[in-house]
């Protein structure tokens, strides 16, 4: 995948497949897509470091990343998954270090931009809350 090649609609299609945005309409996702930019990480490159303030959500288009805590891999995150979501929403430092395992292509969504668009679009807020509630319910069921 080449960088900077996705059209807005392709970004929307991708965003629709990411958990946190799955309840948003394509119009709302169009607004989000316009705020994203494509980024690339080499294998082993650090995306977040534990305790660092989070300035963006990364939505993985291709590749895998390792989420580490206490210098151990806690879990792997792959395509169509997002990293940094919670920290970007509550503006707290990262709980984990995140490193690229493969060459990683992702959409970067600036945390402040997300906050701004949420503050302007009530229906998008509802969609995100609904997705978060669903995640909480799934987590509670486990």
């Amino acid at each position: 995948m080449e960088q900077g090649t996705l059209t807005t609609l392709e970004k929307v299609i991708f965003l629709k497949s990411v958990d946190i945005f799955k309840h948003a309409t394509i119009e709302e996702l169009g607004g989000v897509a316009a705020l994203t930019k494509e980024v690339h990480f080499e294998p082993g490159e650090t995306i977040f470091r534990e305790g660092d303030p989070i300035d963006a959500i990364y939505l993985i288009l291709k590749g895998r990343v390792a989420v580490e805590g206490n210098e151990q891999v806690v879990r792997e995150v792959g395509e169509k998954q997002a990293i940094g979501t919670v920290a970007a929403l509550d503006l707290k430092p990262s709980m984990h270090t995140v490193k690229a395992i493969d060459p990683v292509y992702a959409l970067k969504l600036n945390a402040q931009d997300l906050q701004d668009i949420l503050s302007q679009d009530f229906e998008l807020v509802q969609a995100v809350i609904r997705a978060l509630c669903q995640l909480v319910r799934e987590f509670a069921r486990r």
């Binding site: 609609l9 392709e10 299609i13 991708f14 629709k16 497949s17 309409t25 394509i26 229906e123």
Partner: peptide, 19 residues
Amino acid sequence: SLGHGESLLYFALTDSMDR
């Protein structure tokens, strides 16, 4: 179910109806 190249229109219409 969505992925690259799959129907955005499907979701545009279902979203619209849900709303």
